Computed example of a mutant assay.
Amino acid sequence: MPLLKNHLLQIEIKSIGAELKAITSVKNNNEFMWQADPKIWGSHAPNLFPVIGSMKDDSYIYNDKTYKMTKHGFVRHNDKLIIKSHSDSEITFILTSNDQLYEMYPFLFQFEISYQLKDNIITVNHSVENIDSKTLFFSLGGHPAFACPLFKDEDYTDYYLEFEKQENSKSYLLNMENGLVTGKTKSVIVEGNKIQLHEDLFNEDALIFKDLKSRQVTLKHRDKGLVLSVRFEDFPYLGIWAKPSANYICIEPWLGIADIETTNQQIENKEGIISLASGSVFNASYSIEIDKRHLV
């Protein structure tokens, strides 16, 4: 399994889906990633492309033709990604459109994802190149799941998420039956910048934010302080999720969201969709910073 390593951290990446599997302290072996218990949720950090979340009837329309598309797209379980380059500090995977993918996604593209390890920071870089003669429509995002609680003597409720700025954003609710975004919202941020973790927080599925001012969210323990931060400068949407009562927390930078219930299913009209001109390249990155106090 491909890995990167320096004096502080070792990270492992699965070849299937180029999925981040582990972020481990070199000195004390602390593990910061959820270890994908299949009885609860069998993933670590899926990469989402070319859609985020569910589509109405698992399909979309392009040029008057209907195409099927599974939730979160086709990268996360894909075994066709190849390693383009690999050093001690960086690895890049690439997926190019092929006949099988073209049947569900009629665009010619080149998708790259790279992981860069520098000191105590992992940067996840995405690149999408339109190698077609027509406009490319896509979304992309991350789905990293972090171990929470981190240590055995802790409870889930010992932890909270803290935004870098005061927020008044509300979470957009999903229809629990079809996974589509409704017009309903709920307030989950307290004290202007915190979300307290508890076992019932995700009883209505993921928290979805469209209009955050913050571009960083931090996982903190009420007594021990900062554990890790996710910075998402290039991502206007953010998802936060876990299975109810599970011992992890997903912090998900998104470019796009699931279909809204009133969608006409035209992919070019999908909320958050990116349109990329022929011959153009799109880049977006987010980073994960592990607090050094947990690495000694």
Rank of each mutant, 00 (worst) to 15 (best):
S114G: 06
W41G: 15
F282A: 03
N30C: 05
R231K: 14
D205E: 03
Q10T: 03
E167A: 07
A246F: 11
Y67N: 05
N178A: 07
L3C: 04
V230G: 09
E19C: 05
Q216M: 14
N125E: 02
H143Y: 05
V181C: 11
D291K: 11
C148G: 09
K5V: 05
A22S: 15
D79H: 00
L8Q: 08
S171L: 15
G179H: 05
Q166V: 15
K184P: 03
P244H: 05
Y67H: 04
L238G: 09
K39Y: 12
N269F: 05
E164I: 11
S285W: 02
N28L: 01
V26R: 08
E233H: 15
M176T: 10
H7I: 04
K292T: 14
E129H: 11
P50S: 02
P236E: 02
L101K: 03
S59T: 14
L201E: 09
S280K: 12
Y159L: 10
K184M: 04
F151T: 11
S169D: 10
N193S: 13
D205I: 12
Y102H: 06
L140V: 02
Y286M: 00
L117W: 04
C148F: 00
L20S: 03
W254S: 00
N203T: 03
E112A: 01
A147L: 12
A18F: 01
E154V: 10
E12V: 01
E112R: 14
S245D: 11
T262S: 12
I23M: 01
E164F: 06
G179E: 06
M1F: 04
F93S: 02
F111I: 09
H126A: 05
I11A: 00
E233D: 12
L207C: 14
V51T: 13
V230N: 06
D155K: 15
H143Q: 09
V296H: 13
F138A: 02
N47S: 04
K170V: 07
R215W: 04
A36F: 07
D223G: 13
S245L: 09
P244K: 10
D211S: 13
K186Y: 00
I131E: 05
S139T: 14
T70S: 10
L95K: 03
L212Q: 08
T218S: 12
I290Q: 01
F209W: 10
S245E: 12
L20F: 03
L4M: 01
Q35V: 04
K186N: 12
L173T: 11
W34P: 11
I240E: 04
N120K: 09
T123W: 00
V281F: 00
F111R: 13
I273R: 06
W34N: 14
F109P: 00
I260V: 15
G42L: 05
A242M: 15
N203W: 04
W34T: 13
S25Y: 00
E268G: 07
I251T: 15
L276C: 02
L8I: 06
F74I: 03
L3M: 06
V230R: 15
K56Y: 03
V190E: 15
E191Q: 15
M33L: 10
F93H: 02
N168L: 10
D234F: 00
Y115R: 01
G239L: 12
K65G: 06
Q100S: 04
A18L: 02
G53N: 07
Y60C: 10
H77M: 09
F74E: 01
Y60A: 07
K152I: 14
N78K: 05
N247S: 13
F151S: 10
F137S: 01
F74H: 00
E154I: 12
I91Y: 00
